[in-house]
């Protein structure tokens, strides 16, 4: 197939994701490295691609936005299986034989699984001062050590380490319990969940796959949860997004 290219081209293609054949033809979005975005179709499936102009293409920060922008624009009108950032195939022939034909059944299963679903990313972070105050108030050992180390200067060095160890352990326990509780509350309105590993000060960071018809319920649950958890926790929600966190399990789950 003919690709709109300018300058020299390697024949290699940057792949953004997959949609059902015929769903999309043209993209206004600029692709990675400023290239034009188009589709390679075969067997009822279309790969969203753009030409790779040089073998040592330098990706820039804006290419992250372009990658997501292309996927988001496809997601506006159809079901899309997003590819991992930075996926490049040797040629359109390899893409057709290897993926459009070779992975056809898996991709079709993926579309069916993701049809009518959106991804909501939710993050809840602690107000650290409030969290530490709660721990201090609820743990006499922490309070005692704090008293002992205050004003002790260098003499209190080992007590300070001990204090830090205990506080860190309490924070970890607390976070673990909160993560499970918050994730459960939202998972009740989702069809799938992927949670990110713990991060400092983070009670919840995860992606929820939500049916469009349940989106209003998910959002009210989120609103209610965030209101109930204030002021210790502050929530951020991004979406509806294309299902980037759920694409992998739609075909080859290797995790």
């Amino acid at each position: 197939m003919a690709l709109a290219t300018h300058g020299t081209t390697t024949g290699a293609l940057y792949v953004y994701g997959f949609v059902r054949g015929g769903a999309l033809k043209r993209f206004r979005q600029e692709g990675v490295d400023g290239a034009d975005v188009t589709v390679v179709e075969g067997e009822g499936i279309a790969a969203i691609v753009s030409p790779v102009r040089t073998t040592d293409m330098k990706m820039k920060r804006r290419d992250l936005h372009r990658h997501l922008g292309v996927i988001e624009s496809a997601f506006e009108s159809t079901t899309v299986i997003p590819c991992a950032f930075g996926t490049i195939v040797e040629s359109s022939a390899e893409l057709e034989d290897g993926v459009l034909i070779g992975a056809r059944d898996d991709l079709l299963d993926g579309f069916a699984r993701l049809d009518g679903k959106v991804q909501m990313n939710v993050k809840a972070t602690y107000d650290e001062e409030k969290l530490l105050r709660e721990i201090l108030a609820s743990d006499p050992q922490v309070a005692a050590l704090r008293e002992r180390t205050r004003g002790a200067g260098e003499a209190g060095y080992y007590d300070r380490i001990r204090l830090g160890e205990i506080v860190a352990a309490r924070v970890e326990e607390r976070t673990e319990a909160d993560t499970a509780r918050l994730a459960d509350a939202l998972a009740a309105h989702a069809v799938d969940v992927t949670l990110e590993g713990p991060g400092r000060g983070v009670a919840l960071r995860g992606s929820f796959l939500v049916a469009r018809k349940s989106l209003a319920r998910f959002e009210s649950a989120l609103e209610a949860l965030a209101r109930a958890e204030r002021p210790l926790l502050r929530f951020e929600a991004i979406g509806p997004l294309p299902p980037t966190a759920f694409a992998a399990s739609s075909v080859n789950s290797r995790g």
Partner: peptide
């Protein structure tokens, strides 16, 4: 995040 297609094609 996203689909890794190297089970099917050289990437």
């Amino acid at each position: 995040k996203g689909l890794v297609i190297d089970a099917y094609v050289r990437v």
